[in-house]
Design a protein around this nucleic acid. Structure first.
Ligand code: FES
Ligand code: FES
Lengths: 155, 155
DNA sequence: TGAAATGGTACTAATTCAGTTCTATTATTA
DNA sequence: TAATAATAGAACTGAATTAGTACCATTTCA
């Protein structure tokens, strides 16, 4: 299984396409362009509209328009709207409610929580704007820095 | 669905437990300690043994021993051994083979590839050693730095 | 009035995940 | 030497999730 569901993936295509088409576009157009099942894509676009990413217009020349700024749409947001919030393991959900039976003696609890946070930081940090134009983010160079340091100390 | 499968999660518990028990431990012991289905856990341990993380000893006082250094076991390795290598989307697999039909005009191809790399970097970078003792890694402080910088320029 | 779009909901099929089952082999111990 | 407790290996099943359909209603416009 992929990390991102197809809904998530298709949603990013939709949002990106609509960003390039400020006058809007319909489910038919987008499904044709990317060879995606039309009714499936239509459902996804309904959901995106419902969550305030798109505005809709019915009728013959209807369609959807992107109404949120790409900089304000984080991957974590889309994920939460379409599927569910990110969590690293089953236990991650439990931990907040403190229901995991192993929590008092679990040898990986703290470590996993750190990994959880690192990935969640990426998902909250990366926006549609960066997906559209990966060069705009300073975090790219920072990430390379991180990679070099860790190789130096660790390998 | 969680990012890590249960197999992955249980494997980390197994490896951590065995690190704390250098004389080894059996599937029975570990399944009892963490309340995990014994045959399921046994399968996981077989796989870990098969991939060279553990050595096994049959018979009445048999069991498994951790034979790889925690610093040399990255999350990406375990994931690959138990499930499949990390990939962000269905297309991520295709892209290497260049079979994705949208690849020539896909508006998110480069951006997604960047996200893919960032997450994969974490999975390759974080080892069992860091899971066991999250304070040992310099990347923790670096990560906080990254968070601060990105908040400063972006929010 | 008919075609083309979204709105809403319920349903189905396919796939994956989680867990089981069974038989064989090895080693210890009484 | 027989019972027991462990791993080895493979096939199988049930449950859950994902991916995709189907249907009908409503809106808009030509
Ligand atoms: S598995 Fe739940 S706290 Fe570690
Ligand atoms: S979806 Fe395959 S290249 Fe973008």
């Amino acid at each position: 299984m992929s990390f991102f569901s197809r809904k998530m993936d298709y949603a990013l295509l939709v949002l990106s396409h609509l960003h390039g088409n400020p006058d809007g576009s319909s489910a038919r157009e987008i499904s044709a362009k990317f060879s995606i099942s039309r009714p499936f894509l239509a459902n996804i676009m309904k959901t995106l509209c419902h969550h305030g990413y798109l505005s809709s217009h019915r009728g013959v020349h209807g369609g959807y328009v992107l109404i949120r700024k790409p900089e304000d749409i984080a991957l974590a947001d889309i994920m939460q709207s379409l599927d569910e919030p990110f969590h690293l393991t089953d236990c991650s959900k439990d931990i907040e409610k403190q229901t995991c039976s192993a929590r008092t003696f679990c040898p990986i609890r703290t470590g996993m929580s750190g990994v959880h946070d690192r990935i969640r930081t990426i998902l909250k940090d990366v926006t549609l704007a960066e997906i559209l134009d990966p060069t705009i983010r300073p975090s790219v160079s920072l990430q390379f820095g991180l990679e070099l340091v860790s190789n130096g100390t660790h390998k």
